[in-house]
Nucleic acid binder design. Structure first.
Length: 567
DNA sequence: AGTCCTCACCGG
DNA sequence: AACTCCGGTGAGGACT
């Protein structure tokens, strides 16, 4: 092996420099500490390093991206700390490298800095308050301890994979935020004009919304502001219609001339406030929408974004997502991801057989257990995953349980764990938080294994094990869903990591990721290569995550110029 | 004036 | 047919 290969630890120093050292097995230094005046050069000069160990990807990675330096892999100490704390049932304790060091040495543990507020166009975290610089020696110490803690987890191999995948996700997030989603502001403006009409100079509602508001007022015979639910409910009450809320499905039930314009108003109002002209102004620059992605932003491991609503782009607005001239968008999403994941994690033979085909999973499922009724089969399975408490899904659960006992038992056991106050884990080991809203307070000293009463705030009196309080049942639905949704997130993370590897060396760029869907922007001539690479990455992810199972993760892939044409 | 909560929507 | 899981976003309004 080359002298520069293997793992290296790197710590940033004041003024753009770095100190770094090669690591041996177990994470101990196996060479002299190098002091480099320039961090970027130090990394660029060591292309054979297999994994960089650093405090936090947002601290280091943006500088490398600025200089066009790509790294193969990293170990993000703070991301790893978060996962390890979770596995240890200590989610909510400070996750910074400094906090990890303090716990290790027994000093006072500094609280984490408050999360950054959404800032349109903010590139990475350059403006974050950077905590005290952590010396290389401290970093290596924390890393070594993390290795020991990884060895102590329930499934060390899986947990190591999770930490590696989360770290890869941090790299992908940085690169994707940098690349940006191709966005045609002119197309977006045209769509807005078609839907909403002109804007008035005063900055108030656009024409179409004003017209609808007038129609609504006319239907009530008095001035009603449709964006205020309380006012709408009162107006209906005067006309003898009682409403609990102004939610769409509730309005759809009633017969009143104001309903039709009101529903249209709500649809358009939503687009105006969430993805209208001011959004465009704030978030689109130089033909790109650049959200800031946060891997593991939710407890289940799904990503979130900070600002910009990148994970809720309405379908009509997708018309503005257009590839550059001569380029294409390769849009791929997994078909029926959650039932396939349930098959893989429960190892239910019948469900694995059904999930072992690329075709419509629900159709196959209905052939096997529901005498051909696809909708019933789908509702039953989703009901089992979501913990449905009523309706058709529940009725058909019995049939599901007969045919796929291990699958149903798997989610039932997760629900029972939640109800009893126990923790549950995804397949790779991401762990549920102990209880709702326990992110501060004086919980220290509570026994690990004892169910924990909810902290005093919030009007909830917690739950009592063995009694099925509403809180306990809600907790059960959460943990039931967590094992499936979270394991799906495990898989998706591995897909991203594999795809990132596959795209290195060509011009294609990952530009979007949303739970079960990726978009790659590439020259037209690379589109077929990219489409095949995504399919291969899905297979690699399935086997890496869940081992050898018959379960397949087929992708629906489209090569398009406009995102809106993908479905 | 700033903070927190609720509502309602979007999307998976 | 009912509205169960997860989260982000903005506006309004109650509160300090």
């Amino acid at each position: 092996m080359s002298d520069t290969g293997g793992r290296w630890a790197l710590a940033a120093t004041e003024g753009g420099g770095a100190r770094l050292v090669a690591l041996g097995p177990g994470g101990a230094p196996r060479g002299p500490v190098v002091t480099a005046p320039d961090l970027v050069t130090a990394v660029r000069d060591r292309p054979h390093v297999e994994r960089w160990v650093w405090r936090s990807t947002p601290e280091i990675h943006p500088r490398l991206l600025d200089a066009g330096v790509r790294v193969e892999r990293c170990h993000d100490i703070e991301a790893a700390e978060q996962l390890l704390l979770g596995h240890e049932g200590r989610l909510g304790e400070p996750r910074s490298a400094g906090a990890a060091l303090a716990r290790l040495r027994g000093g006072p543990v500094p609280p984490d800095p408050p999360p950054r507020s959404a800032e349109p166009g903010a590139q990475s975290s350059l403006f974050d308050p950077v905590p005290v610089p952590l010396p290389l020696e401290s970093l290596v110490e924390v890393y070594g301890e993390q290795q020991r803690r990884l060895d102590a987890t329930e499934h060390p191999g899986r947990m190591r994979l999770l930490v590696a995948a989360e770290s890869a996700g941090m790299l992908v997030a940085g690169e994707m935020g940098r690349a940006g989603l191709p966005w045609r502001a002119d197309v977006h403006r045209r769509v807005l004009a078609e839907l909403l009409g002109e804007r008035y100079a005063g900055g108030g509602e656009p024409r179409r919304l004003a017209e609808l508001a007038d129609e609504i007022s006319a239907a009530f015979g008095r001035r009603v502001r449709p964006e205020l639910p309380a006012e709408v409910i009162k107006a209906f009450a005067r006309d003898g219609v009682r409403l609990r809320s102004t939610r769409r499905w509730e309005l759809e039930e009633i017969d009143h001339p104001a309903v039709a314009p009101l529903l249209e108003y709500k649809r358009l109002y939503r687009i105006w406030v969430a993805h209208g002209w001011s959004w465009l102004q704030d978030w689109v620059r130089d033909g790109r929408f650049r959200p800031s992605y946060l891997p593991g932003g939710t407890v289940s491991g799904r990503w979130t974004t900070q600002g910009g609503g990148a994970l809720q782009i309405p379908r009509v607005i997708r018309r503005a997502v257009v590839a550059d001239d001569g380029w294409r968008l390769v849009v791929a999403d997994v078909a029926q991801m959650e039932p396939r994941v349930l098959a893989a994690i429960s190892r239910d033979p019948g469900l694995m057989e059904v999930a072992g085909h690329d075709g419509d999973l629900y159709a196959l499922l209905s052939d096997r257990a529901f005498s051909g009724d696809r909708e019933q089969a789908k509702l039953a399975l989703l009901g089992a995953i979501y913990g449905q408490t009523s309706g058709d899904g529940l009725r058909n659960l019995a049939a599901l349980r007969r045919r796929f006992p291990a699958a149903v038992a798997h989610v039932d056991e997760a629900a029972r764990a939640g109800e009893e106050g126990r923790l549950v884990r995804t397949w790779l080991g991401r762990t549920s938080p102990r209880a709702v809203g326990r992110d501060e307070g004086d919980e220290a000293g509570l026994p690990q294994e004892a169910p924990e009463p909810a902290p005093g705030s919030g009007g909830s009196d917690g739950f009592t094990p063995g009694h099925s309080s509403a809180d306990a049942r809600a907790r059960g639905r959460f943990t039931r869903n967590f094992v499936v949704q979270g394991s799906a997130a495990d898989w998706a993370l591995l897909l991203l990591a594999a795809l990132r590897q596959a795209l290195s060396g060509i011009r294609a760029e990952l530009v979007f990721f949303q739970h079960d869907e990726v978009i790659v922007h590439c020259p037209a001539e690379e589109a077929e290569t990219v489409a095949r690479a995504i399919g291969r990455a899905a297979g690699i992810a399935g086997e890496a995550a869940f081992g050898r199972t018959p379960v397949r993760f087929p992708l629906t892939t489209a090569v398009v110029e406009c995102y809106a044409d993908a479905k």
